[in-house]
Nucleic acid binder design. Structure first.
Lengths: 204, 204
DNA sequence: GAATGTTTTAATCAAATGTTTAAATATTTT
DNA sequence: AAAATATTTAAACATTTGATTAAAACATTC
């Protein structure tokens, strides 16, 4: 499949479809998305979707892997870094994750929905055990608080960071926040979460 | 529509369908569920679904309202009780919510997925502002920590309680837990969350 | 500029899916 | 028991939807 030579500002049909697929799949999930939705969003003929990506499923897989990478790719290197302290890791997670999710707030619900319908494949592609058992973070947690299960603490830090983005549609619809205000709250949260987590680690 | 007189142990067709709908909708969500899935799960003829409930959508709405009630009904009375302290409320939420969700662990992802595709209707049926602005809990939070936005703290407590159930499929698939072990962890969590939250409130 | 390869389009297909129909069966009422 | 009403069934219907096809339009190569 040779590439056409096109002006720099032109976006290839393939990329238009991929971008439309990102948008629609992210918003509605796999089952609720029609190939025609994607074609319309991309402004292309329906048949081109199959021409470039063979099938709806293949296209979805592409988007999913990309998003999965975005979601877990941020956290892995931070948790495994042997040169940072526990406190620094928490600070980094809060900061990097909130920054990422502020840009793509639909990411968590997309990932979690997909896990619900396809836990096996998801787990195969993420090596969760590397986080939950072997990571530097787990070792540091265990050393600090042998009486708290590291998984408990990982669920806590992730819950503190991610859960607000799951509540976001509810908050915004309830009129208690607009996009700007929500972003401001999440930025505020970047500072609170490390403080909160440190105090949790000191609980008697 | 007169009721048939049937032996006590017989379950009515209507209830069989409703129960099957609960099961399938909860597991797969609205779009991924086929009416034939529900009919099969209920062990009834496909046409009976429309005979008793008019449409897939009407049946879904019924299930959804029920689950919504379960999810928010637990939290409302606790947060609005003027006779309990901040600490008692947190303890109650952790205990009651974890108990509820241990019985129906798919509830959170179901609710959140539905909110994603239908935030307006959801918000109309929950009076979220009653929690986020007017509740006793918010007043107590504000009195204790005027420098922390109450919504921040509500997101935190809910995140600590609910998020593990969203990660459950991932944890269990990763082989780091079976049902029994997960339940044990969540029971453990009933005691940690109040301690954690109290320490968060004391952060400098 | 003819030949060749690539991209796009309109039309169509086949399967899936929510729903309806009409006849059969069971139950209740008179 | 007969009539009326309610429930159940098998079949079919009408759309929707993912995918394909065949030809046209376009671009590139020789």
């Amino acid at each position: 499949m040779a590439k056409k030579i096109k002006p720099e500002d032109e976006v290839s049909t393939e990329e238009k479809i991929k971008e439309a697929a990102r948008t629609v799949f992210m918003k509605k999930g796999f089952s609720a998305t029609r190939t025609r939705d994607i074609a319309e969003e991309a402004g292309i003929n329906l048949a081109l979707l199959n021409y470039y990506f063979r099938s709806k499923e293949k296209l979805f897989e592409l988007v999913m892997m990309e998003k999965f990478q975005a979601f877990f790719g941020v956290i892995f290197p931070i948790l495994n870094d042997p040169s940072t302290s526990l406190e620094q890791k928490v600070e980094l997670i809060a900061d990097r994750y909130i920054t990422l999710l502020t840009e793509t707030p639909d990411l968590p619900i997309f990932i979690l929905s997909e896990i619900r319908t396809n836990a096996e494949r998801m787990v195969a592609s993420v090596h969760l055990d590397k986080i939950l058992v072997d990571s530097q973070f787990v070792k540091q947690l265990h050393q600090r608080r042998p009486d708290m299960h590291p998984v408990q603490l990982i669920m806590s830090i992730l819950g503190l960071v991610v859960f607000p983005f799951l509540m976001r549609p509810l908050l915004m619809q309830a009129g208690n926040a607009d996009t700007k205000m929500f972003t401001a709250m999440m930025n505020d949260r970047k500072q609170w979460i490390p403080k909160w987590f440190d105090s949790m680690l000191k609980v008697k």
